[in-house]
């Protein structure tokens, strides 16, 4: 991957396209944790790609590429969310209350603890941490880098989010929604 990043830094469109294509599912899912509408998710991915291609020449370390790209994506999802809601700042809980997840249907998992369960039952920051950890395989340290929060904070938030998932699931979350 680092060879491709070097090439992309030098303006190689094909190299950049390959990099982004390898990550397209990740970008889609991460944007989905904030934006419940699939058209908004596509917009976020598109804006991220445009900005990233223009800026990649400034990327200092090729090994940073994935976390750097995801950070841009998270910023873009915030922009779109705000534009959509026509307000400057919103709380996580307002997002939780107002978004309806109408993105593509998943194959249901037998036990019910899936992407929709996470999105419906956790506030945004917690669900983002869970998705980045369990779906995207980032470490707590890497998640801290992406979100600009301390690694220790990530670990604690992830642990508490898991406790919440466990408790909600065990007491009736199986039949949520």
């Amino acid at each position: 991957m680092e060879d491709l990043v070097e090439k992309a830094k030098n303006g190689d469109k094909d190299a950049f396209a390959t990099l982004v294509t390898q990550m397209q599912d990740d970008l889609y899912r991460i944007a989905e944790t904030r934006l419940g509408n699939c058209e908004d998710v596509y917009d976020a991915v598109q804006e991220t790609i445009i900005v990233a291609f223009k800026s990649i020449k400034h990327l200092r370390e090729t090994s940073f590429f994935k976390t750097w790209l995801i950070r841009i994506l998270i910023n873009k999802t915030t922009d779109i969310y705000r534009r959509k809601k026509n307000r400057k700042f919103v709380s996580f809980d307002e997002i939780k209350m107002s978004e309806k997840y109408d993105t593509e249907m998943f194959d249901s998992v037998e036990n019910g603890i899936d992407f929709n369960f996470i999105c419906n039952n956790l506030k945004y920051e917690d669900r983002l941490i869970i998705i980045l950890y369990y779906m995207e395989n980032f470490t707590d340290k890497e998640i801290g880098r992406i979100l600009n929060i301390k690694e220790n904070t990530v670990t604690t938030k992830r642990t508490r989010a898991k406790e919440k998932i466990k408790k909600i699931y065990e007491t009736g979350g199986k039949n949520y929604g």
């Binding site: 396209a17 599912d25 899912r29 699939c38 991915v45 790609i49 593509e104 194959d107 779906m135």
Partner: peptide
């Protein structure tokens, strides 16, 4: 469960490919 659900549908994948192409080229 989350790893299982990471992969997007074929329809979404096609749309994303189109977006990638348009955005870069």
């Amino acid at each position: 469960n989350l790893q299982t659900q990471k992969k997007v549908s074929e329809e979404t994948s096609k749309k994303l490919s189109k977006i990638i192409h348009e955005s870069i080229y």
